[in-house]
Amino acid sequence: MFTVYYREVVVEVAFYIAGAVAIIATGLMLKDLNVVHALLYLIVSLLAVAIVFYVIGAPFVAALEVIIYAGAIMVLFVFVVMMLNLGDSAVAMEKGWLTPKSWTGPTVLAGVLLCEVAYLVVRGGGAQMGIGMVSPKQVGIILFGPYLIGVELASMLLLAGLVGAYHLGVRTTPKAEIRHARDTYTRRATPSGDLVLAGTDRPPRTP
């Protein structure tokens, strides 16, 4: 009896610690002026939310949060930030970013989360609070049962997002290339001629 009570208290403490870490990281993200530091805090916040999911008994969603949110979507953000920062001052900025002041905050918060996860894993057993746990099997059965139309709509939404991102992200052809191609076409030698006289179609250069 006592052990069960102890377990619930421990899990509840883990829940509140993870929630506090999530809120603190989000607040620090808003406060930070540097985009990359804000990204670090956002990743820590998402990991904390994943631990909250795990603790309240939704392990499937916790895994998805880590893989898709903290993995894929944040990689997109990192790519865009790195693409926008191409320049001569990139090296100097890198040096400025790697100060201890910049990485202590996210490291401390992530360390708290890591200790928590290690404790929960070592302790073993289901990590849910007093309320029960919704297994991935239940989620899958319902997802492909009554919600099948939603899955189809989600796939169409993803396709639309893919096509839209490609359409917006593709560079337009520079006008110089089009002009060059057109000039090359008009300057081509006539089929009856023997020689290609380069430059004869240009007007004489006026100094």
Partner: peptide, 28 residues
């Protein structure tokens, strides 16, 4: 989780899908 229904997690999956599509278009 409070009411022991899996529907909440289903909706979270849809929110995740929408967030992925939205962020790709937004970053482009």
């Amino acid at each position: 989780s409070r009411w022991q229904q899996a529907d909440g997690q289903i909706v979270f999956l849809f929110v995740l899908t929408m967030a992925a599509a939205e962020v790709s278009v937004g970053l482009a």
